[in-house]
């Protein structure tokens, strides 16, 4: 009875089956094309660059949960990358303080959007230029070096599970637990669904939105650190494409642009899927010039499939 109820709850989670199936199919196709991928080393190399995308997707998901959208997460990752490759290496205390300050800035951005009833799409677009400008100030030309410990973490080979899968599992589980299972997480998702209902429950909408944005900032910092560990250096323009990749990952993972419908596990799967889209083409020997079109195509396919399913249900 309890197991059945749990199974039903899992099945009811917005479209988790679809991204999971897509991920496994793509992985299977790549392994079929190149069997050596199906090894500890192969998966580590293939999925390595999913790590920053996973955190970027989770950051984007926190903002989308509030019914907003974040157009600045990519440049934000660049900024974290530049700080991590310079200050965090030379003056760890100052570096950590700067990263904590960035999380606070994200929370303040949430407060601004709430208090002035500004459209998040405009505020975060403006912020994206601020992040980029700060990143160039911190590191005008590409260079710097990741702290040794960070590079070591990124190169760490954990037992049993390749690092990218382990990171995806842990980050996804933590986000699931906080946002989907936790008592306050329900309130946070509620503001994306019906803010007035949450306010009439006596909750502070300001505090809820600030919490979500702070969580986004924290995930963005983790994503920037993961990127730094992989690249072992800093570059002010390196994160640009994560804005669109993160949005696509959330949507492919079963999230919706409006209404607070999100899925942390889906966002993690979405990040893997967006990465594998490019790899799959490469392994199938299709020109990489198709990669952007393929990623866009997958997004449209997912949305179309979802619309069809919804119509079927209605």
């Amino acid at each position: 009875m309890a197991a059945e109820a749990r199974a039903r709850r899992l099945a009811l989670r917005p479209g988790l089956a679809l991204p999971a199936l897509a991920f496994l199919l793509m992985l299977g196709a790549i392994i079929a094309a190149e069997p050596r991928v199906a090894s500890y080393f192969g998966l580590t190399v293939l999925l390595g660059f999913a790590m920053p995308a996973i955190f970027a997707a989770l950051a984007q998901m926190a903002v989308i949960a509030a019914g907003d959208i974040d157009l600045g997460i990519g440049p934000f990752l660049s900024l974290v990358n530049c700080i991590a490759a310079t200050w965090l290496t030379d003056r760890p205390a100052a570096g950590l303080a700067a990263l904590a300050g960035l999380v606070a800035l994200y929370a303040a951005m949430g407060a601004l959007i709430h208090a002035r009833a500004l459209p998040a799409i405009v505020v975060t677009l403006g912020a994206s230029f601020v992040w980029l400008g700060l990143a160039i100030l911190v590191l005008p030309t590409p260079g710097g070096a990741a702290p040794a410990w960070l590079a070591a973490v990124a190169a760490w080979r954990p037992p049993l599970l390749p690092l990218p899968l382990l990171v995806g599992l842990l980050a996804g589980a933590a986000a699931e637990w906080l946002l989907m299972r936790g008592a306050y997480g329900v309130v946070l998702r509620g503001i994306g669904g019906n803010p007035r209902a949450v306010a009439r429950g006596g909750w502070s909408l300001l505090r809820a939105r600030m919490s979500l944005y702070a969580a986004a900032g924290l995930a963005g910092v983790l994503g920037g650190l993961a990127l730094t560990g992989l690249d072992t250096s800093g570059d002010a323009t390196v994160g640009g494409q994560y804005t669109l990749v993160s949005i696509a990952a959330v949507i492919v993972g079963g999230g919706e642009f409006t209404g607070g419908v999100v899925s942390p596990a889906g966002a993690v799967l979405g990040a893997f899927i967006m990465l594998l889209t490019g790899s799959l083409l490469s392994f199938l020997d299709v020109s990489t010039d198709w990669q952007l079109s393929a990623q866009g195509g997958i997004l449209i396919l997912v949305l179309a499939a979802r619309a069809l399913r919804r119509r079927g249900r209605a």
């Binding site: 190399v45 390595g48 660059f49 920053p52 994160g239 494409q241 994560y242 990465l275 490019g278 392994f283």
Partner: peptide, 10 residues
């Protein structure tokens, strides 16, 4: 750069 990095990994 990130796209190219993941392509090199492939």
């Amino acid at each position: 750069a990130t796209q190219q990095a993941s392509q090199i990994a492939d």
